[in-house]
């Protein structure tokens, strides 16, 4: 560690003096830290917003549970109940917006993870 002071943990089998990508952890880089995660059920056609108080646009991930109980990332396009769905998710500096993206009256479960790390 010649260029900075901090904490490093190497991956199993790797030397602590190896390059950064062989580290399990390094205080030189931020890790994705979960701010908020949860699930919400939405019945078509509807939208909801998961509020946050971070004051900036954070990194996030969203998945939707289809009728076959499989999860896929959102936004996406797929056929479910013989109808094409376009579930939508976008993040602003005040909240996460979720939209079922379909007019058929079906309930879908959204799973979301919002991180502290800033996207914008």
């Amino acid at each position: 560690m010649t260029e900075y002071y901090g904490v490093k943990v190497s991956k199993d089998g790797k030397d602590i003096t190896d390059i950064d990508k062989e580290m399990s952890f390094s205080s030189k880089y931020r890790n994705l830290t979960v701010y908020l995660s949860g699930t919400v059920d939405l019945t078509n056609p509807t939208t909801t917003t998961i509020a946050h108080t971070l004051g900036y646009v954070p990194i996030f991930l969203v998945w939707i549970k289809k009728s076959d109980n499989n999860y896929c990332p959102v936004p996406n396009s797929f056929s479910d109940h013989s109808v094409v769905h376009h579930p939508e998710a976008y993040m602003t500096d005040t909240g996460l917006y979720l939209n079922t993206g379909c007019d058929t009256s079906v309930t879908h479960t959204f799973k979301y993870v919002i991180f502290y790390e800033k996207l914008v």
């Binding site: 939208t47 646009v57 996030f60 959102v74 936004p75 998710a89 939209n99 993206g101 914008v120």
Partner: peptide, 17 residues
């Protein structure tokens, strides 16, 4: 716009219904 979506594929752009 300040509204950011993950670039999943296929990702249909569908803004505010």
């Amino acid at each position: 716009s300040g509204k950011y979506r993950e670039m999943t594929s296929p990702g249909t752009i569908y803004y505010d219904l």
